[in-house]
Design a protein around this nucleic acid. Structure first.
Length: 283
DNA sequence: ATGGGGGCCTGCCGGC
DNA sequence: TGCCGGCAGGCCCCCA
């Protein structure tokens, strides 16, 4: 579930409940996710007020009134569920506890934020707010794809001389931070670029087109995630749901959606991960 | 130095 | 029905 658009959707859902609210109690049900939780995490969260909920790439960053920032990563299967609070027009009751509810933030006023992560590829950590950019998970990230630093000249510079497939290059969080397997496939399809093409062998014109395409793909996904906040799935309290409507991702063997092209979408494996593309539209 | 593969976990789905 | 292989939106680490 979580690439940049999903994480941003989760952030937007959580922010109204978390920002300005007091964490009355932090319930920590295991010692780790992918890595051990920081020492005394429950105590360091308890009694703290959340000042602001931000995002860097796929990381949620909750600034606390203790000069510390809580980092949350959703990994592959992490979900944040809000309950006991009014979101939009509806009050969300507390659901029955579920398997893999690893951390629960009990907020002032009865609200709850539950972090559930079956596969435990997610992570949480605490760091000084003043040093978030130096955190080891953050410091090597490339620019935000929706920010000004991500530009055609920048990307051309990073691609220059690279023999790695462009698919892998765009998944490299040090080049651009926030893309994952789905949106890379979708962006390359829209740009008409074959995923196996060496990054260094894409001309400046196509790189110039790719940058706004990446922005569009992500912006549209955020808009779709946002609209799903109002559907019944959201009313059940689940945040970050995104209606899948992809041109190539997950569509192996189905006809390409480009008008006039009905070539079957192909699936290949690159660096151990599925890539979907149209062999006719992408060169 | 850089790129590819393994590994971390659990759940689900399709085939036999 | 049950078992097994394959697959899943991420990312660190190790090795060539």
């Amino acid at each position: 579930m979580p690439e940049l658009p999903e994480v941003e959707t989760v952030r937007r859902g959580l922010a109204p409940v978390m920002e300005g609210a007091l964490i009355e109690r932090a319930e920590v049900n295991r010692p780790d996710l992918r890595w051990p939780f920081p020492d005394g995490m429950a105590e360091r969260l308890t009694g703290r007020r959340v000042l602001r909920l931000g995002r860097r790439s796929k990381y949620l960053l909750a600034d606390l009134d203790s000069q510390e920032t809580l980092l949350i990563h959703l990994g592959m299967s992490g979900r944040m569920q809000v309950s006991g609070a009014t979101i939009g027009a509806f009050f969300h009751d507390h659901p029955a506890p579920e398997k893999h509810d690893h951390v629960v933030l009990h907020m002032e006023g009865g609200g709850r934020i539950t972090f559930n992560d079956a596969r435990r590829f997610g992570a949480m950590d605490l760091m000084p707010t003043a040093g978030t950019e130096e955190h080891w998970l953050i410091r090597d990230l490339g620019p935000e794809p929706l920010g000004n630093a991500f530009s055609a000249p920048y990307l051309a510079g990073r691609f220059r001389g690279k023999r790695t497939p462009v698919k892998s290059a765009l998944l490299d969080q040090g080049i651009v931070a926030g893309l994952g397997n789905i949106y890379v496939c979708e962006a390359l399809y829209r740009a008409g670029i074959h995923p196996a093409r060496h990054a260094g062998r894409i001309g400046p014109g196509r790189i110039g087109a790719l940058v706004p395409i990446i922005r569009d793909v992500l912006t549209e996904a955020i808009a779709a995630g946002g609209s799903s906040l109002r559907d019944h799935r959201q009313a059940s309290g689940e945040l970050g749901y995104f209606q899948h409507d992809f041109a190539v991702y997950g569509r192996e063997g189905q006809p390409c959606r480009t008008p006039g092209c009905d070539a079957p979408v192909r699936r290949i494996v690159q660096s151990g991960r599925s890539t979907f593309y149209c062999p006719r539209c992408q060169r």
